[in-house]
Amino acid sequence: MNFHQVQMGSLPSVLKIFRRVKSELKNQKNDQWKWIYPNRSNYKADLRNGSMYGISYGDELIAVVTLDNMQSKRYQLISWNDKDGKPCCIHRLAVDPSHQGKGLGKVLLQYIENFAIRNGYTSVRIDVYKINETAKALYIRNGYEERGEVRYPMRKHTYVTMEKQLCKLS
């Protein structure tokens, strides 16, 4: 497996992963991702900005995630542990359903945390749809702590904000 920055030429593979994930979420009665978000514009912006990373197995892109320091304004109301550091934010993490259940989530989190440390981040933050118990359990098993909840438009449920401190500030 290879963790790498995803290039614009991989857009068809990115679209395929998100199409499959959205279909799987719909089958699970999870309205987390709909047609409005995430969408092709989000993916293209991530690729243009150089903020999308992925895991490839051979020539196949099997998981993607966007990593940056862009935080929702809603995060200002959350009591974060890392108050004075530089948080890395996870957006649009997706593992192709045909590769789920094989430990890729944990591997991806390890890559993300190593990336964050190498780039001077002091913590990692994410928000997870409240009914996505599988994702919440993955983050908790890997040392992420629940910090609060935020609400986004056109979603039935709230999102649980989670954080993992990577290093202590001196």
Score class of each variant (00 low, 15 high):
Phe115Arg: 06
Lys26Ile: 08
Glu145Thr: 12
Thr158Met: 12
Gly148Met: 09
Asp82Glu: 07
Ile117Ser: 07
Arg155Glu: 11
Ile17Phe: 02
Leu169Ser: 05
Pro12Gly: 07
Phe115Cys: 06
Ile17Gln: 00
Leu108Ala: 00
Pro12Met: 08
Leu25Thr: 04
Ile62Phe: 06
Gly105Ser: 09
Ala137Gly: 10
Asn27Trp: 02
Lys83His: 06
Met162Pro: 06
Asn142Asp: 05
Glu146Pro: 10
Phe18Tyr: 14
Arg151Gly: 11
His91Glu: 10
Trp35Pro: 00
Arg48Cys: 04
Ile140Pro: 01
Ser23Phe: 12
Gly105Lys: 00
Ala116Ile: 02
Gln100Glu: 09
Gln71Ala: 11
Ile117Trp: 03
Ser123Tyr: 00
Tyr139His: 10
Met162Arg: 01
Tyr139Asp: 10
Ala63Trp: 00
Lys164Ser: 06
Arg40Gln: 11
Lys83Thr: 13
Asp59Glu: 15
Ala116Tyr: 01
Cys88Gln: 02
Tyr57Trp: 14
Leu93Met: 15
Lys26Tyr: 12
Lys34Trp: 11
Ser41Thr: 03
Glu146Arg: 10
Asp84Leu: 14
Trp33Thr: 04
Gln100Pro: 04
Gln28Tyr: 08
Asp31Ala: 13
Leu11Tyr: 01
Glu133Tyr: 12
Ala135Arg: 03
Cys88Asp: 02
His157Arg: 14
Asp82Trp: 01
Lys136Leu: 13
Val14Gly: 01
Lys26Trp: 10
Gln32Met: 09
Phe115His: 12
Leu166Ile: 10
Asp84Ile: 14
Arg141Val: 07
Leu109His: 06
Pro38Ile: 00
Gly50Phe: 01
Ser72Val: 05
Gln28Thr: 10
Lys26Val: 10
Arg147Gln: 15
Leu15Trp: 01
Gly120Ile: 05
Val128His: 03
Ile78Leu: 05
Gly85Asn: 03
Phe115Trp: 13
Arg48Gln: 12
Lys156Ser: 15
Arg147Trp: 11
Arg118Lys: 11
Ile112His: 06
Ile131Tyr: 08
Met154Asn: 14
Ser10Ile: 04
Tyr53Gln: 02
Tyr152His: 11
Arg125Tyr: 03
Ser72Lys: 09
Lys22Leu: 05
Asp127Arg: 05
Met154Pro: 02
Leu166Gly: 08
Ile131Val: 14
Val95Cys: 02
Leu108Tyr: 00
Leu93Val: 04
Asp127Asn: 08
Lys22Glu: 04
Asn119Val: 11
Leu77Met: 14
Gln5Glu: 06
His99Arg: 15
Asn119His: 15
Asp82Tyr: 04
Val21Ser: 01
Ala45Cys: 08
